[in-house]
Design a protein around this nucleic acid. Sequence first.
DNA 1: GCTAATCGGAACAAGATGGTCCGATTAGCT
DNA 2: AGCTAATCGGACCATCTTGTTCCGATTAGC
Lengths: 156, 156
Amino acid sequence: MRLSSLSDYAVVMMSAAARHCGGVRLNATLLAEETGVPLPTAQKLVSRLSSAGLLESTRGTGGGFRLSRPPAAISLADVIEAVEGPIALTACVEESRHDCAIEGSCRVRPHWTVVNTAVRGALAGVSLAQLSVEPVSQSAPHNAISRAPALAGAQE
Amino acid sequence: MRLSSLSDYAVVMMSAAARHCGGVRLNATLLAEETGVPLPTAQKLVSRLSSAGLLESTRGTGGGFRLSRPPAAISLADVIEAVEGPIALTACVEESRHDCAIEGSCRVRPHWTVVNTAVRGALAGVSLAQLSVEPVSQSAPHNAISRAPALAGAQE
DNA sequence: GCTAATCGGAACAAGATGGTCCGATTAGCT
DNA sequence: AGCTAATCGGACCATCTTGTTCCGATTAGC
């Protein structure tokens, strides 16, 4: 019941990209420095995001990425689905996946579809534009390093 | 964005347990046969569910398990949290986990808490009692084997 | 007091995830 | 026009969580 680290990183990166003006080109290196995401991981993410159609890429010297749509038209669900595929809490709610023997008489399945729709709606209701608003004064620069470096126990 | 197979199995098993009268004792073997969950996995699950307080266990010959609460008082969120811990989409929404460098000025975090609450609410709104109603006539016995044997691609 | 059946937790294997690297492509410069 | 340099794109490998399996501890019944 936790989304992958890549999705978390992707949301942060897209949020950072949305804060820039739509026109400027930014590359993976810049985004990695701003967000603190490791560079190779950032490269992998922008690759997936562009192949999913959320980013438009330009190769060659001076190339980079750009949001393909205005930030208000990109939701958390879009970003998550771009990174880790369709949102499906269980295998049986996913289309074209019918490998459950009791699917015909399963009483749990219809409820899963309802819950899944609710979850997806909660994610689709938040856009990148909403993530760009700054609740506090921009005192602290956000180019912090080691953002959530590990899901492992870094308690002590 | 998919819950673990163990949680899926646990929901099916708890749903099966809820269909029995509250008084009867059932053991892991019986539940495994009814639901198609592999027996060792079923044992592991009932162990976690009982340690979480959802099942009451009785050891020794003739022992077994029993729901500790009426089915209407057990929700999907209870079962999932019993199996895989607190529901937290990201590490930063979990209590006592503050290993994010930009947590103080992060604009994404407050939105994550909102989304997380919505997701948890969707799961808490479905009780085992609701899962027990039978939408179709009980034509097909549900002691089917190999319920979702793999999350791997079993397409062809 | 012994036996048998059950729960409980520890140990192992597998798949998925996350991180790293190198090659293909393209714009800019000489 | 050719070359160089910078960037994207995809393939490879280590790591971790997940899922499975097994064996020991406990307890009711005989």
